[in-house]
Amino acid sequence: MIIIWWLQTQTGKSSLVGLTNAIFSITAALSIFYGPIIDKHSFKRTSQTSLLVQTILLFLLTAVMFWVSHDIVLTILISAVLSICDEFFSPRRSCDP
């Protein structure tokens, strides 16, 4: 939500906000394909790695948004990768009770 709000206030372009929201929706919709990757590896290790990558990317995203460059494209790219990592951290596994 914060990324969407930030994009709206920075650019004022609702089409860019809609595109970004579509990217987030696509990463969530593609989560059915992440399952085989998660099942091939240790769930604990996959979750820990995902959380580490998310932490690093969140610091990078904050730097890009507020201190370094205010680059809109880089902000959307980092946010999309964060969205994918979130799916690896809390996957919707069908074999869980």
Rank of each mutant, 00 (worst) to 15 (best):
Met1Leu: 10
Ile3His: 00
Ile4Trp: 11
Ile4Cys: 12
Leu7Cys: 05
Gln8Phe: 06
Gln8Val: 06
Gln10Asn: 10
Thr11Glu: 05
Thr11Lys: 10
Gly12Asp: 02
Gly12Ile: 09
Ser15Leu: 13
Leu16Lys: 02
Leu16Arg: 01
Val17Glu: 08
Thr20Leu: 08
Asn21Phe: 14
Ile23Phe: 04
Phe24Thr: 02
Phe24Gln: 03
Ile26Leu: 10
Ala29Asn: 11
Ala29Arg: 07
Ser31Cys: 09
Ser31Glu: 04
Ser31Ile: 03
Ile32Pro: 04
Ile32Ser: 07
Phe33Ala: 14
Phe33Trp: 14
Tyr34Arg: 12
Gly35Phe: 01
Pro36Met: 06
Pro36Arg: 08
Pro36Leu: 13
Ile37Lys: 10
Ile38Met: 08
Asp39Val: 02
Lys40Arg: 13
Lys40Ser: 11
His41Arg: 15
Ser42Gly: 08
Ser42Trp: 04
Arg45Gly: 10
Thr46Cys: 13
Ser47Gly: 10
Thr49Asp: 08
Leu51Asp: 01
Leu51Lys: 09
Leu52Arg: 08
Leu52Ser: 05
Ile56Arg: 11
Ile56Met: 10
Leu57Lys: 05
Leu57Gln: 08
Leu58Asn: 01
Leu58Ile: 03
Phe59Trp: 12
Phe59Ala: 13
Leu60Ser: 04
Phe66Gln: 09
His70Trp: 13
Leu74Asn: 03
Thr75His: 08
Thr75Trp: 03
Ile76Trp: 09
Ile76Phe: 06
Ile78Leu: 03
Ser79Trp: 00
Leu82Ser: 07
Leu82Gly: 01
Ser83Gln: 10
Ile84Leu: 11
Cys85Trp: 04
Glu87Ala: 00
Phe89Trp: 03
Phe89Arg: 00
Ser90Pro: 02
Arg92Tyr: 11
Arg93His: 10
Pro97Arg: 13
